[in-house]
Design a protein around this nucleic acid. Structure first.
Length: 256
DNA sequence: ATTACTACCTGACAGC
DNA sequence: TGCTGTCAGGTAGTAA
């Protein structure tokens, strides 16, 4: 579920409670959350000191005195303080409390790594020139390209649809001009920073590490608005499938 | 390089 | 109340 703005809010809510703390013990309640190495991971994590926490694309990276923890929430992962519930997959006992990795669908993971995971250029960190170069080096349709984390990291289904709408670009467009890519870059930067400021989008169950929901879902212009009137031209928003993902766009405002 | 399809999972919701 | 099918903020693997 979480994309860049949600992960950013998780990181910000995590920082004041975990940076500088020690990890007393790590327990994996679901071995696959440790990518099949629960004992080894628990061993590597216990006794470590947390030096910092940051975001890379959709990854949460917790820097330790030795290596780091790489957490990916995938669709339903959450990090929460407090007692583990029925969907707890891993528990970090810190010297000041308990951090629980919760994940209904069990797609996410929490693993120790010696160094950062591979990732494309972070969508918020990229400059306009970098963004344009990266996109122009590829041939395919714009939506699948923006979803490809090894090119630009952080965008997911909601924010791609929202950014393409704001830029007036059809999700299947390709070979875009420099001018249209500049407009797309501005749209991406704007939608991501507005969403971060709104605490992210909580459509069903996203919450940050303090359990707070976001409110950006109220500012979605196309995502989840199939058949509703376009906020610009009143034409009904259309839903198609692109890359096996529900894709929302305005057939009048977004031309190929 | 790009696309298409399957798989990993559970839960919410619509329609019968 | 079921039951069935569809959908979901993601990504890996495999094949064409």
């Amino acid at each position: 579920m979480p994309e860049l703005p949600e992960v950013e809010n998780v990181v910000r809510s995590l920082a004041p409670r975990i940076v500088g703390r020690g990890i007393i013990e790590a327990r994996f309640l679901w071995p696959r959350a440790a990518q099949g190495e629960p004992d080894g991971m628990a061993e590597l994590l216990s006794g470590r000191i947390i030096r910092g926490v940051r975001r890379l694309g959709k990854h949460i990276l917790i820097d330790l005195d030795v290596g780091l923890i790489d957490i990916h929430l995938r669709m339903t992962g959450k990090l929460l303080f407090g007692e583990p519930g029925p969907y707890a997959r891993a528990v970090l006992q810190l010297d000041n409390g308990t951090l629980v990795f919760d994940d209904v669908r069990q797609f996410g993971y929490l693993v120790w790594r010696a160094a950062d995971p591979p990732a494309g250029r972070d969508a918020l960190a990229a400059t306009a020139d970098e963004f344009i170069m990266l996109v122009r080096a590829r041939r395919g349709r714009i939506k699948p390209l923006l979803l490809n984390q090894s090119v630009i990291a952080g965008l997911g289904n909601i924010y791609v649809d929202e950014a393409l709408f704001r830029a007036g670009i059809h999700p299947l467009a390709h070979g875009l001009s420099r001018k249209r890519l500049e407009r797309l870059y501005q749209a991406i930067s704007a939608v991501l920073s507005e969403a971060i400021d709104a605490g992210g989008s909580s459509i069903s169950n996203y919450v940050d590490a303090e359990g707070r929901r976001g409110s950006f879902q109220r500012q979605h212009r196309v995502y989840g608005r199939e058949s509703e009137p376009c906020l610009t031209c009143k034409k009904p928003i259309r839903r198609i499938v692109v890359s096996q993902r529900g894709t929302h766009y305005c057939p009048r405002c977004q031309r190929p």
